[in-house]
Design a protein around this nucleic acid. Structure first.
Lengths: 192, 192
DNA sequence: ACAGATTGGCTAGCACTGCTAGAATCCAGA
DNA sequence: TCTGGATTCTAGCAGTGCTAGCCAATCTGT
């Protein structure tokens, strides 16, 4: 029992090692630099070891993404907790979201841009993902008027934030007007 | 004179051949299927010929993207011309935009998702790109209230549309509520 | 009409990618 | 101490974008 227990523990540790190494490498040099060879060298194991833990490179990215969801949820929660009022909450969360996307581009890509076979809008979606969405939801919900569905409204607001982040990061939107655009988005989602 | 003229003409024709072949292949099987070898086979030339026309694969994608901008501009213009009223225009353009993104995913990716070194928010941006943005602008402009800058407001609205398209296409948003989300977005950008 | 220069396209190959089969090694249990 | 089974590694496959250098067809000047 104990021997097998130790083995499984070591295995789990190594799996974590892979994920954090992939994440650090991606954040430092972008996902293009995260090759299986490079990653294997980083964790000081041979390449095939990666495939005994993950089905492929995409699965590793997915694991990194899940880590990212948890962190983003925490940051959104902190931002919301720091202010009061519906408009202030929405602004705070929106700023926290876009700030996360700009500060951690590689992480953000793994979470929201890269094609990855994680379940999203279903029950089986990772808990951390629901947590992040829940933070957005709690900030958006108080702005609901009429019989709009809060969930759908949150999705729409989220899409706005996501569009701002990705278009800006790929050079399609100039960085300088970011604050203005964010204010406009929040303004149009909060009836005055 | 005439000989050189014919040569340049043939060259231009072959360049167009490359772009349309790349586009068709991408739309049929996705950008992953567009390899330099496959593309070369499609146009019945050898691989290196591609590099005498374009700096690399990214440059080919950029050329496809520019084609896409022109088409999108035309579709947006048609959508806007078919209706009257500010809210109706905005709805029509928004629907045309997201419809384009869903109907031509590969084209859309080349235009708005793939990292490509095209100038965007500067004077040197392709004319077709300005045309597409101009269509959005003309639909958004009438909704401006106060002293908001129409250009920045259009960028924000565009971000919303882009977010909806990309998140839905990557499976992050369920398809079924798309119409509802689109209506919500338009609704929040037109004060009743 | 012919020799030489030039252009253009091709063959072959480089360095790299994600991934895997099979050999080699290690290590718990007898 | 030996053995069987799991684990990890070496070596290699098929594919990628891209390029050097050869070879032939074409144009130019005599």
């Amino acid at each position: 029992m104990s021997i097998q227990g130790r083995r499984e523990r070591e295995r789990a540790e190594r799996e974590q090692l892979i994920v954090t190494a992939a994440r650090e490498l991606a954040e430092a040099e972008g996902w293009d630099a995260v090759t299986t060879r490079r990653l294997a060298a980083e964790i000081e194991y041979s390449q095939p070891v990666l495939y005994s833990h993950f089905k492929g490179k995409d699965a590793i990215m997915a694991a990194v993404a899940v880590q990212g969801f948890a962190e983003m949820a925490a940051e959104l929660r902190a931002a919301r907790a720091a202010v009061e009022g519906t408009r202030e909450s929405l602004t705070a969360v929106a700023e926290a979201y876009t700030s996360f996307g700009r500060r951690r581009p590689a992480l953000y890509d793994a979470m929201f841009t890269h094609r990855v076979d994680l379940p999203f809008a279903t029950q089986e979606a990772p808990k951390a993902l629901w947590a992040a969405f829940g933070e957005l939801l709690q900030a958006v919900e108080p702005t609901v008027t009429g019989d709009d569905d809060p969930g759908t409204l949150t999705e729409t607001f989220w899409a706005g934030l996501h569009g701002l982040v990705t278009l800006m990061r790929s050079g399609r939107l100039p960085e300088e007007a970011h604050e203005t655009r964010l204010a406009l988005l929040v303004g149009h989602f909060t009836t005055p």
